[in-house]
């Protein structure tokens, strides 16, 4: 029950953050898009180089995402509870697939799953079904087929 209430409360904050981004600066809160745009500007390969102000809000958003668990660490003396047990090899493979897939597929859990579905975007709805399906399949193979 606590899990369910936490899920609803946390989800509400995620939705609220997306509303703040659109209502405040008119941008979709798509984390992969924000990160890949920062990366693109940093390596200077952008064909449509966005202005300096775009770089700053994107960096500020990412800093905010990092700041919340950091604040927990500083105030409480330990990081928020979480279990990371993937091996380095799995982390590398997973990171490569997540990064490449998000760029080619134009979004991730936040951009498609939270923002796109709320806009009733067919593209985002299809993308969310696609990544939920393959996510479930990958977890199944990892845990049950290969006895992880």
């Amino acid at each position: 029950m606590t899990d369910a209430l936490n899920a609803i409360a946390g989800g509400a904050l995620i939705g609220l953050a997306a509303v703040m981004m659109m209502g405040g600066i008119g941008r979709v809160m798509g984390v992969s898009g924000i990160i890949s745009a920062l990366l693109n500007e940093r390596i200077g390969a952008g064909q449509h180089a966005p202005g300096r102000s775009d770089f700053i809000w994107r960096a500020a958003f990412v800093a905010g995402v990092f700041a919340a668990p950091l604040g927990h660490l500083v105030l409480i003396g330990q990081p928020p509870a979480a279990t990371f047990d993937a091996s380095p090899g799995v982390l590398v493979l997973a990171g490569l697939l997540v990064g490449a897939g998000a760029v080619v597929g134009s979004g991730c859990t936040s951009g498609h799953g939270v923002c796109g579905i709320a806009r009733l975007s067919a593209r985002s709805t299809v993308a969310t079904f696609a990544f939920m399906s393959t996510g479930i399949a990958a977890t199944f193979l990892m845990r049950h087929a290969f006895g992880g």
């Binding site: 982390l91 997973a94 697939l97 597929g105 593209r123 399906s133 990958a138």
Partner: peptide
Amino acid sequence: LIAGAAVFGVGWGLAGLCP
């Protein structure tokens, strides 16, 4: 869109992490 999202999901399901 579809191939990218499918690949993204595989990565998400391997480590439980998204961006």
